[in-house]
Simulated assay, not measured.
Amino acid sequence: MSSTDLVPTAGTSAVQTQARTDGQQFLTFRVGGEEYGMDILRVQEIRSYEAPTRVANAPSFVKGVVNLRGVIVPILDLRIRLGQPSEYNAFTVVIVLNVAGRVVGVVVDSVSDVLELSAEDIKARPEVPAAMDSRFITGLGKIGERMLILLDIEAMIKSPDFGLVD
């Protein structure tokens, strides 16, 4: 065996390759009566909701900013953005995301769990009129009788509609 036999090709190892083929993990959360999922790799942390400092002339879904260990984090209410009522209670949480080189918090009704979905569990997004732009839906996840709307949270945050990323 030569020394080149021990070098992984294209920067991957057998362990990394295996992890990629086993499935993708999603953080599941609720907004209104729907259950959504987002790529767990975008999630930095989950925090209880605390009223942020308001920002003048911000859109209604931008609740304000919080200081998170020295980082000023904009807080967006995903419920308002998705056209749902936004009542703040003990279950309301902020999912802190790291997207597009920024830290952003999104407010949701509650966080459910982390699920791993195989490619067979993910169906193509439906082409139906919806309140939310279908560009941000990557597919539908099916777990038993549960149906998850899988979001491309990075594309959503980077969209001009949010106005957070140049």
Rank of each mutant, 00 (worst) to 15 (best):
M132V: 15
I153P: 01
V111N: 02
P85V: 10
S13F: 13
N89V: 07
S159N: 04
N98I: 14
Q44I: 01
L6Y: 15
V114Q: 08
T21P: 00
R81Y: 14
E45H: 03
T4V: 15
V55N: 00
L68G: 01
L140W: 09
P85M: 10
P52M: 02
Y36R: 02
E34A: 11
I95H: 05
Q18S: 07
V55H: 00
D39Q: 02
R20P: 00
F26Q: 00
P85K: 03
G141C: 10
T28A: 11
D152K: 01
V106R: 03
V73A: 07
F26V: 07
L151D: 00
L151G: 07
L115N: 05
A124S: 10
R146T: 13
I157C: 08
M147Q: 12
G37S: 04
R102C: 04
P85E: 13
Q84F: 15
S13W: 11
I143E: 13
R69F: 12
V66E: 06
R79Y: 09
V108W: 11
M147D: 02
R54L: 12
V73F: 07
V96E: 06
S110K: 09
G11P: 04
R102G: 02
V94G: 01
V65L: 13
V43H: 03
V62L: 15
D113V: 01
V107E: 03
L78W: 07
V128I: 13
P129R: 07
V96L: 10
T9I: 13
E50V: 15
I75M: 11
Y36H: 06
V114N: 04
F61L: 09
D109Y: 12
I72M: 11
M1G: 15
M147P: 01
S3C: 11
L78Q: 02
L76Y: 07
E116K: 15
M38G: 04
S112Q: 08
G163L: 08
L117C: 09
I40L: 12
L97P: 10
V73C: 08
L97A: 04
N57C: 08
P160C: 07
P74A: 10
T4S: 14
V94A: 01
L68Q: 05
Q44E: 12
D109R: 05
P129H: 01
A124C: 00
F26K: 02
T138Q: 11
Q18W: 14
P85I: 11
G101W: 15
P52C: 05
I75T: 01
D22V: 14
V65R: 04
V55S: 03
R47S: 04
R54P: 14
V31E: 03
A58M: 06
N98W: 02
E35P: 00
I40C: 08
P52H: 05
M147V: 15
P52G: 04
R102N: 10
T9L: 14
E45V: 03
M132L: 15
S110R: 09
V165D: 07
E127V: 15
Y36A: 02
V71C: 05
A90T: 09
G32Q: 06
D39N: 09
T138L: 12
G139D: 06
I137D: 09
T17S: 08
N89I: 04
V15K: 08
S86Q: 00
V99A: 15
F26G: 06
L97Q: 07
V165H: 06
A130N: 13
P52Y: 06
T28P: 09
R81Q: 03
